[in-house]
Design a protein around this nucleic acid. Structure first.
Lengths: 152, 152
DNA sequence: AATAAATCTACTAAATCGATGGATTTAATA
DNA sequence: TATTAAATCCATCGATTTAGTAGATTTATT
C-alpha cells in the first residue's frame, strides 16, 4: 500500500501540473485545496524539489512549480522520490540494485524471477504514465457537472 | 519492498512445496535450511496455517505441510497473508476494498485509475504463479552442479 | 522597513518490523 | 503411564518508520 506521503505527493504534483505555466503556487494553497497538513506537505515538496522534480521561489510571490512539462514527469519518478525503489526486492531494482543479503545464487533464485516480472510490469505502467496523461484521463471521465478534484 | 517476513514466508512455502507429500516438516529444519530465526518463523507459519495455506501436527513426528498441492497455492495468496492486500490503494483492492478516506468521487479519481492498472498487472502475475510453477522455473535454470537453494 | 514566502532545525507520538523467551498443550512411543 | 518431541500461546521488546508539529531563519518583493 502507498504511504500517506506518497498519496500527498501525487496529489500535489497533479495540482501543480494543472496549474503549470501559471507561475508559482503556494504550499498553503495546495494544502488547502487537497486537504493535507501544510507542514507535512512542506517536507514532501522540498524532497521533490531536491530530487529535481520541482522548482521553487522564496519570498513574496514565491511558491512551487514543476521543473518540467507535465508530459515529461512520470508517476514512477514521483513515487521513487517519496517511496524509494518500485521493485519488490533490491536485487530486481534497476535504479537501486542491491544484492540480497543471503542470496546464494541470484541467477537461480526462484523468488527473484517472479519478482522481476512484477517489477517489470509495474515499472512499465508507472514510468510510461506522465502527469499530463493522468490529467487527460481524469478530464475525459468527468461526468455531470461536478467540480474537478484529484481525490484519492 | 517486500518485508523480511514476506521473504521468509515465500522461502518457507517453497521448502514445504519441494517436500510436499513426504509428511510433516519441522519448523526447526526449515529455519536451519533457509537460515531464518526459528522463533520468527514460528509466528509466520502459524499465520499461514490460520489462513488455511498450511496444516500442522503437534507432538512427536509432527510438523508443517501444505494444505493443498503446490500447484494449487499461488504467490498472491501467500503474500496477502503476510503483507496484506496487493493493491497500492485500498480503493482498488478486490479482496480488501475500502473507500479512500477523503475521496470525493472514486469514478473520477485520476490516481485511482493508474493504481488500478498497477494492481491488475501485479495481481495477474502473482495470482497465476503457483508454488509448483516457481519450483519448476527454479529447477529449469539450474546451471552446473551446485546445490539447490531458494535463496532470496 | 515591512511583509510574505520557502527553508532549516529539532522534536514527538504512534505504529510497524523483526524479532525473543518461556510456559503450555498435544501427540507419539517406550 | 512417563518421557519426549513437537507445535502453540502469551507477553514483551528495541529499532525503525510513519505522519506529523513547532518555531526560528533565510530570501525575495514591495
Amino acid at each position: 500500500m502507498l504511504s500517506q506521503k506518497a498519496k500527498y505527493a501525487l496529489k500535489a504534483m497533479l495540482v501543480l501540473a494543472r496549474e503549470s505555466g501559471r507561475g508559482p503556487i503556494l504550499i498553503a494553497d495546495i494544502a488547502q485545496r487537497e486537504r493535507m497538513p501544510r507542514k507535512f506537505l512542506e517536507v514532501i515538496l522540498l524532497e521533490l524539489r531536491n530530487q529535481g522534480l520541482l522548482q521553487s521561489r522564496k519570498g513574496k510571490g514565491g511558491g512551487y512549480f514543476l521543473a518540467r512539462q507535465p508530459s515529461q514527469i512520470t508517476m514512477g519518478e514521483i513515487l521513487r522520490v517519496v517511496e524509494g525503489p518500485l521493485a519488490p526486492l533490491p536485487c530486481v531494482s534497476k535504479v537501486a540494485y542491491r544484492r540480497c543479503d543471503e542470496c546464494h545464487d541470484e541467477r537461480t533464485c526462484a523468488i527473484r524471477m517472479v519478482m522481476k516480472d512484477v517489477r517489470e510490469a509495474t515499472a512499465h505502467i508507472l514510468d510510461s504514465t506522465t502527469l499530463a496523461d493522468v490529467l487527460k484521463r481524469a478530464d475525459s471521465t468527468i461526468h455531470g457537472r461536478g467540480a474537478l478534484i484529484y481525490a484519492i
